[in-house]
Design a protein around this nucleic acid. Sequence first.
DNA 1: TATGAATGAGGTTTCATTCAT
DNA 2: CATGAATGAAACCTCATTCAT
Lengths: 204, 204, 204, 204
Amino acid sequence: MGTSHTRRGNTRQRIQDVALELFAEQGYEKTSLREIAERLEVTKAALYYHFKTKEDIIISLFEDLCRPIDELITWAEGQPRTLETKQELVRRYSESLRSSEALFRFMQENQATVRDLTIGQGFKERMLTLYGLLKEPDAELVDQVRCITALFSMHAGMFAMQNVVGDPEEKREAILRVATELVTAANPPSRRPARPDSAQTASP
Amino acid sequence: MGTSHTRRGNTRQRIQDVALELFAEQGYEKTSLREIAERLEVTKAALYYHFKTKEDIIISLFEDLCRPIDELITWAEGQPRTLETKQELVRRYSESLRSSEALFRFMQENQATVRDLTIGQGFKERMLTLYGLLKEPDAELVDQVRCITALFSMHAGMFAMQNVVGDPEEKREAILRVATELVTAANPPSRRPARPDSAQTASP
Amino acid sequence: MGTSHTRRGNTRQRIQDVALELFAEQGYEKTSLREIAERLEVTKAALYYHFKTKEDIIISLFEDLCRPIDELITWAEGQPRTLETKQELVRRYSESLRSSEALFRFMQENQATVRDLTIGQGFKERMLTLYGLLKEPDAELVDQVRCITALFSMHAGMFAMQNVVGDPEEKREAILRVATELVTAANPPSRRPARPDSAQTASP
Amino acid sequence: MGTSHTRRGNTRQRIQDVALELFAEQGYEKTSLREIAERLEVTKAALYYHFKTKEDIIISLFEDLCRPIDELITWAEGQPRTLETKQELVRRYSESLRSSEALFRFMQENQATVRDLTIGQGFKERMLTLYGLLKEPDAELVDQVRCITALFSMHAGMFAMQNVVGDPEEKREAILRVATELVTAANPPSRRPARPDSAQTASP
DNA sequence: TATGAATGAGGTTTCATTCAT
DNA sequence: CATGAATGAAACCTCATTCAT
């Protein structure tokens, strides 16, 4: 029982890992099943034992990714629609991104591919749902942009800042702070349920 | 003078147009030369008369795109490094995007492809240069994020807001406003060369 | 004793049934073991417990089919070579087809496959033997055609008449009648051992 | 200008010839494009220059085959619906089969394949049309069988008689004669428009 | 009696590219 | 300025088959 035959039921997992790695690195179309198989030291046919098609591999990755997002959405829908909730939503989202960095990078960099990938639609819907949870129903155009930018900046942030020096965790916190500011600015006091001690006038 | 013989010599341009359209719609890898040729009602071989390789087509598109950016960089480098310059830089950049929406969409959605496309590097460098022009040399991490987000939001904005109703030009202005705010926030008075008439206190 | 555990030991039979069904429906090559296994809700490997190869499955079907034919041949060879015997041979053959309709349909529609299937040769030989039992040794070319057509019509008849309305059993009888006529015509009185009461002259 | 580069525009034809040969010999599914290409000493990709898919090759063969049949149908539909017309129809059909022997053999032996080949339906319809031209509208079941058998015997005849010695043309004539007899028997005098000099009584 | 995991060979198809005309 | 014909490489996928458990 050496090293290579002991891998019991973890092949499926290993395929997902390698696939994600390569998809993120080179893109979905440019990554061939041969490549994945070679890196795993199995045959292409073995991949097809675990996944019915190439698309199936990526779908399985998406599913893993979407679960936490769905939970987040469920949570937010059960909360009062206050600024605090929105800020917390952004915070939690930022955190869940941390564990799925590669996949988010993949999606960010392969939107054209993702778009017609069936499941891509599902992801887009979730983004729209999050967006709907961040913005007020009657928000002005600028505030809509702020909310969208907040979400996008969290997605794009990590790899857009690869050339910026610094501790990854610090970067994430900086990104989170900017996103939070955007959301906060998009929910001005005048639009929030009035509070007696807030006497500010809305910015024009 | 029918419809099909009037196109004299403009074939090269037509190839670029159709290619960009398809690249933006489906991605670079998923768009085949056959498809481009068919839509133009010429043969694949005809494409090779005008472009040496498939990559050459995309390179030519990049070159057209980069020219205005280079001009913008040249202009900015000749200006004083004030907040006003930065705001104007953002404004001008936003405007030049307007005419190259498809190509920017393509780049935004096909980063993985663009990345190892030789010319992709060139584009990235230009982005870094713009970034360098927006941020102060000793900017804090948060302010770096603000500058990057400003740039990104302009790229991503247009198609991220496809499902938002409204006049495109109004949207662009909203995006520009948010980007400007981000840049402004990233260049707080305390960091700018002090001016006698600015009495604001820096935000902590 | 649920539904799925009652099948004790009859798996082999069930494989044959499903395989025949699919072979007849789609052809041998186009039917994969995966398909058979799925329809049976077992794994492909289970098929290999019961049959050594895919061809083995079809061979086993042929063997079941050939047994009655062999009995028929044995019977016919023990009879006097009269027209009555031939007519009875056709009648009995028609009857034995009834219970193997699917397999005959398969053979009729997949001759190209059957041809190089080892056992296919065996079937062809049996057909030639039957043919030899129907025709007179010195039969004219036309009479040879009649005999061959008689056999073929019985094979092809059933599914060639799928779009003809009517009771299956009635159809079979009609086919049998035509086949009998052909055999009768192929064995004219002049060639049969003369009988005192038959005064017909041979047809030109 | 040797032998191998002079083949100007005949490649398409050569593909059809070789494909038909191999399809008839081994069946459609068992014949790979590699095989066809190798026999032609071209690459597989060359086949795809001339035909969009493997199925396309066979479709083109069918089209060539169907043309004469369609002409025959058109002709027959313009004739009076007499026994003589039907006999002539059979005669002409037999003749047109002569030049398409391989394709008919292919169809006869690969019905399962042909069945779901789109164009297969078209062929079946033509057969039904021919059948409808041979039989009287209110024909009895037995007469319907006779007409079907007449058609089938012509299809199957040639290769079913491969082991029968004799001149091919003589064989064809013998088959034609049997087919004609079947059609004649299927159109008894009592069912034909009465003619003053035909005093026969109908057979029961 | 059956399964889970894997393989090797081969299938059809598509692609970017070339070159004589 | 463009085409018709072809190529070589590689893509995704399927199949029959094996074997340890």
